[in-house]
């Protein structure tokens, strides 16, 4: 089981090779760009850019489509809400108290598109093409100036690293303990909810005991390896920004500028939200 690596898809595309710091910055810029888009043409531009990004990443479409499942409900809810309650000019349907306007339909479509674009672009940049550990490193180095004003950036990043390191170990252990309890006749899959929750107690307690034991062992081992916190520490793998990181960031900035221009000079059906 590879939970520790979340949704990461092994690969060697341009997107995979971008510096994690660049990807963090680009994600933020991209979110801003998506929110800047105000009308159909601007949305078209952002959609094309996102499709291009999917193409560059070479992540299978199935995986990306699958990633949209969690927002299905919220997207549908937003769409329905917009279709029925939006007041526009071009009335399409007028039955009893239901009034549907063309603008309402467009608005609903664009809002759903915005949610979808947000999800796809951030997960493309930050989960599908970046390992959690690279992301942690990137975040640590990006935020390191904050350490000067006393925010324990290194400590958070170390905690994150250790958590990522031990998640698979603890999952394995949970499996082992569950099997051991099953062998003693425990039943986790039938009975009322209360009964099932109660059946979990003999798993959670040994798991906690062992997790504390591991934590204490690991702390000793780290101390023994001269760990004294972030001060005076160097890194073997220093992140190096390369030209492609700047080029990619520049492209996203251009996209943003384009979107603003389209908003101004090509007013089409604009969204209000």
């Amino acid at each position: 089981m590879d939970v520790a690596f979340g949704q990461y898809c092994e690969g060697d595309s341009l997107l995979h090779r971008l510096d994690p710091r660049a990807k963090l910055i680009i994600s933020i810029l991209y979110i801003v760009v998506i929110f800047l888009a105000k009308n159909v043409f601007a949305f078209a531009a952002v959609t094309v850019a996102t499709l291009a990004m999917i193409f560059i990443s070479r992540i299978p479409k199935v995986i990306i489509a699958g990633g949209l499942k969690p927002i299905l409900f919220i997207a549908m809810f937003t769409a329905v809400f917009n279709i029925f309650f939006f007041k526009g000019e071009t009335l399409l349907v007028d039955v009893w108290i239901i009034k549907i306007y063309l603008e309402g339909l467009i608005n609903a479509g664009l809002i759903v598109l915005r949610i979808v674009l947000l999800l796809i672009s951030t997960s493309l940049l930050l989960t599908y093409t970046t390992t959690p550990i690279a992301l942690t490193d990137g975040l640590e180095q990006l935020l390191s100036p904050l350490a000067k004003i006393g925010i324990p950036i290194h400590d958070f990043s170390m905690m994150m690293t250790i958590a990522l390191r031990f998640i698979p170990t603890l999952i394995e252990e949970t499996d082992k303990i569950m099997n051991a309890q099953k062998a003693r006749g425990a039943d986790f899959s039938s009975g009322s909810i209360i009964k099932r929750v109660r059946a979990l107690i003999p798993i959670i307690i040994p798991l906690f005991v062992s997790a504390f034991r591991r934590a204490s062992d690991l702390a000793t081992a780290m101390e023994c390896r001269c760990y004294t916190g972030g001060k005076g520490r160097t890194r073997m793998n220093v992140l190096h920004a390369s030209p492609r990181d700047f080029v990619f960031t520049f492209c996203v900035i251009c996209l943003g500028a384009g979107v603003i221009l389209i908003n101004i000079y090509a007013p089409g059906y604009s969204v209000s939200m």
């Binding site: 550990i133 690293t161 170990t169 690991l218 390896r225 520490r233 160097t234 073997m236 220093v238």
Partner: peptide, 28 residues
Amino acid sequence: FQNPDNQIVATVVEEDVAFGCENLGIPS
């Protein structure tokens, strides 16, 4: 130590090997 699981800090082998050296402040 005795338990191999409880003394490995990093999620990648080479980064774990580097951990001690990084603590000593040795150049990359």
